[in-house]
Each structure stands twice: as structure tokens, then as C-alpha cells.
Nucleic acid binder design. Structure first.
Length: 415
RNA sequence: CGGGGCGUGGCUCAGUUUGGCUAGAGCGCUUGGUUUGGGACCAAGAGGACACAGGUUCAAGUCCUGUCGCCCCGACCA
């Protein structure tokens, strides 16, 4: 992709109103724009990152045997009345009546819908265990949206649901999913901690949250500086039970929330199956959510410097940036085109900055956008054919290579 | 929903306290020229009627009333 053709509206300044770093960087780097409070547009660059994040999630979930489907965002309010959650969610649930006088709502989560699906399509213990998931837009009329994508009214969520014949089997799936989440977050460059949580409106017997420490997080955690153990803020203790050290209060972002639902939904919605003895019983359920769009600010929060974003290579919108500094020389652009198609044939994406502007602007934009590797075709190339590879994370590691070494080098650096 | 702040070209903001010439700056944009390794410079342009509605006044971006929108803190948060 040539920068001159790309829609990447970067900004030099950010408004004084946006006080979270990640949100300001998302606006400045041309990742998102606000439509109205709590509702955001994903620009091409932001959407590329979001798709990369989804790729990681899909790939890991598929590995543990979870199957992707897509449930409707539009749901009959009837289902919610059945479980009584229309009242639990209250005004958060966005409801309306269609022209046929049908009462509908926009899905804030999908326990009712998936349970309804299972009720009609699972009837035997032979059909379980089963894990289904989707990546979908959720709608919640938040009292106060904040922090850009951190808490918005329309957001992307990955929600998975497990179906088992008994508690022991649920425990297995639950563990499987938690391990999978740890893997996903570590691939995304997020140092997550897991701790027990309040099941809240979703319900169930047991529940855990996956959190990452962040100054701009909405949640608070107690942290032991000695044994590194984390405690939920609600537990209310002031010193570590083990080390007796004073706990430190830290802000954190909730990345994911898992629940052992048990029979909460299957009982009310009559999602039952016949066990091996021919006895009818409710399906045992689990539910596992990841705030996908929230991962964007969470990752940026953990990976940035004063110049801008530093994407982990798994989620960078482009794998390689090429800055043509000697743009007045036709040969430089020719070489850049050649290099980018050679790199693309390795299955890597390239953002080629061919713009007729000064070097400083390109460097600053590429720093802001945060692509991990940058090739410069500039004065060293003019002098003796050297291409420079600059690492976004650490410029002191800059290396010089010749044109014919590019594929080999990129392959090693991106593996 | 309670408290606080804000709304002036595409972006970031000044101007409002103490009403007064024709509404400003920087960035961005267009054209020409000089530049060209860390957000260049010169020149010439385009672009706003000051969130909206009412009111006070000889005169309102500025004062008053109402409405709408946005941000932050709190409450809430699957």
C-alpha cells in the first residue's frame, strides 16, 4: 500500500479534552474517529489492527476446538423477559418496536440467544462437550461512555459459550478456555493477571476477570510488591496474607471475563438433553467474553512512547514500513516498489511512504503509526547502496543491509 | 443521574472577565518558487459569522434565559 493513496489522516495535535494516552494516540495515528459519544468509526488503519487481533483470537480458539458462528444482533425482547434479564439490564438494553409491533432489542450479550439455539438443536449427551463462539458487535446504552474505545455503547466482543453434561466436564472446558486466554493475551503483548470476580448480571457460580495494569484503567486492583500476587479491590484487605507486606492500589483494564453459568439459563429456557441413562437434564454452561475493541487501547497503553504507538508484531497494521527519503530520484521509488512486492510475496504487508514531503514528516508519521520495522531508502543508499532497517522499539539497533539481503533479513526479523 | 469543564474555519486554540472598527493565530489545504535525514521557508489564495433558539442593547463571539452536543470526576459497569 502506498501512503499517498492510503486514507491515514494523522494529526499533529490532540485535543486537551482527551486525557487518556491510548485514546489520544488512536485519534492522532488515524485509527479511529468519533461519530457521537460512545460510538466510533474504525478507520482503515484501526480496522487492520482490529482484524489482526481477531486473527489471533480465532486462531487460538480454533486450536482448542471452539467453533465460530454468528448470532444476530437483533433479538426478540421475549427471550429477555423469559430470563428476567430485561429488568436486570434495565436501560442498558436498547429496545424498540418494529413496524409490525414486534418488540426487539439490540444484543448487549448473547446468553439467551445461544441457549435458545442449543435448546432447539441439542438433545443428547453425545452432542457435548461443545464450545461455540462469535466475534460480534454488542450494543449497550452506557450511562457514561469513556476513554474512547475503553467503554463505548457499540463495541466488538468475542463471546464463547461452552456446553457440557456435568460440572466436571465444565471445569475442564473452563480451564481450557482460561489457558487459551492466557495464550491470546501473551501473543497480543498483554501481561494479564487472572483473579476471581463478581458474576454480576451474567450470573453463575464462579467467575474470573483477566486484567492488565494500566494507569488509565477503570478498575482497581491490590498488588503485593513482594510476591506479585494480585487481589481484587473488593476483598478490602490492606496487606498481603502471605508476605504481610502493604498492598499497592493499581488501576487496571478488564480484558476478559469468564463465568461458570451452570444451569442458570438452560433451566429457565429448558435447554435440556438426555443423559446416557435416558434421563432429561439441563445443559451445563460456561461463558467467556473478550472485549475485542477494548484490546486496541489496552495494547497501545502497554506499547507506546513519546513518539507514538509501538505495535507488537502480531497486530501491527503493516509488517514493514518503507520510507523513500530520496523521493526526488526516480530510481529510489522504483527500488521501493520492487522491495515492497518482494516483501509482500513473503506474505508480509508493506506501507510504502512515497509522499513528496520532507523526511522528518515521514519519520514522525511512521513513528506515530508504530510499524515495528522500517526500511529507509535515503542518503546511505545514494552513497553506497545501503538500506537501513530501523526498529521502532529501539533506534540504536539500526542495521544496514544491501538490497539483495532484504527478504532474508525481513524473514528472520519477523519470525 | 449528581458535580465540574467545554462548544469560535478540516485540526489545535486565543478572543468572552470589563459588549464597540470589517472575527484572529498556528497547523492543514490550493498555486508558484526555493528547499530536502527528524513535523522547512517565501509569496499569493480558498475556507468560519462564533453549537442552536429566544431576549437585553444604538451595538452581542462577549451579557441574560432556554435547548442541544462533547469531555472529566462520582454513581453504575455484563
Amino acid at each position: 500500500m502506498r501512503f499517498s493513496n492510503a486514507f491515514i489522516p494523522t494529526l499533529k495535535e490532540s485535543s486537551q479534552e482527551t486525557d487518556s494516552i491510548s485514546h489520544a494516540l488512536m485519534l492522532r495515528a488515524g485509527l479511529i474517529r468519533m461519530l457521537t459519544s460512545g460510538v466510533y468509526i474504525y478507520l482503515p488503519l484501526g480496522w487492520r489492527v482490529l482484524k489482526k487481533i481477531q486473527d489471533v483470537i480465532r486462531s487460538e480458539l480454533d486450536k482448542v476446538g471452539a467453533q465460530e458462528l454468528l448470532l444476530p444482533a437483533l433479538q426478540p425482547l421475549e427471550l429477555w423477559k423469559l430470563t428476567g434479564r430485561d429488568k436486570d439490564l434495565g436501560q442498558t438494553l436498547i429496545c424498540f418496536t418494529d413496524r409490525k409491533n414486534r418488540k426487539l432489542c439490540l444484543g448487549p450479550t448473547h446468553e439467551e440467544v445461544i441457549t435458545d439455539l442449543v435448546k432447539n438443536n441439542i438433545s443428547s449427551y453425545r452432542q457435548m462437550p461443545l464450545i461455540l463462539y462469535q466475534i460480534q458487535t454488542k450494543f449497550r446504552d452506557e450511562l457514561r461512555p469513556r476513554g474512547g474505545l475503553m467503554r463505548s455503547c457499540e463495541f466488538i466482543m468475542k463471546d464463547a459459550y461452552s456446553f457440557d453434561i456435568d460440572e466436571a466436564s465444565l471445569d475442564k472446558n473452563y480451564q481450557l478456555m482460561c489457558d487459551c486466554y492466557n495464550k491470546i493475551f501473551s501473543l497480543l503483548g498483554l501481561n494479564s493477571v487472572r483473579l476471581e470476580a463478581d458474576p454480576g448480571v451474567i450470573g453463575g457460580s464462579e467467575s474470573h476477570e483477566f486484567m492488565v495494569f494500566s494507569e488509565n484503567g477503570e478498575d482497581k486492583l491490590h498488588y503485593c510488591p513482594s510476591c506479585k500476587k494480585t487481589f481484587s479491590f473488593k476483598e478490602g484487605q490492606s496487606s498481603c496474607l502471605k508476605c504481610k507486606k502493604d498492598l499497592i492500589l493499581k488501576n487496571a483494564i478488564e480484558l476478559a471475563h469468564t463465568f461458570k453459568l451452570g444451569m442458570k439459563y438452560s433451566k429457565v429456557q429448558s435447554a435440556t438433553f438426555l443423559n446416557e441413562k435416558g434421563k432429561r437434564q439441563p445443559v451445563i454452561m460456561g461463558c467467556y467474553g473478550i472485549g475485542v475493541s477494548r484490546l486496541l487501547p489496552a495494547i497501545i497503553d502497554q506499547h507506546h512512547d513519546e513518539k507514538g504507538i509501538i505495535w507488537p508484531k502480531e497486530v501491527s497494521p503493516f509488517d514493514v514500513g518503507i520510507a523513500v527519503v530520496e523521493f526526488s530520484k526516480p530510481k529510489a521509488l522504483e527500488l521501493a516498489d520492487k522491495l515492497s512486492s518482494r516483501i509482500e510475496s513473503l506474505g508480509k504487508s508493506v506501507l510504502l511512504d512515497d509522499r513528496d514531503i520532507r523526511a522528518g514528516v515521514k519519520f514522525n508519521d511512521l513513528d506515530l503509526i508504530g510499524i515495528p520495522l522500517r526500511i529507509i531508502i535515503g542518503k546511505h543508499w545514494l552513497e553506497n547502496g545501503d538500506l537501513e532497517i530501523i526498529f521502532r522499539k529501539d533506534k540504536s539497533k539500526t542495521i544496514k543491509i544491501k538490497e539483495q539481503e532484504v527478504e532474508e533479513k525481513i524473514k528472520t526479523l519477523l519470525s
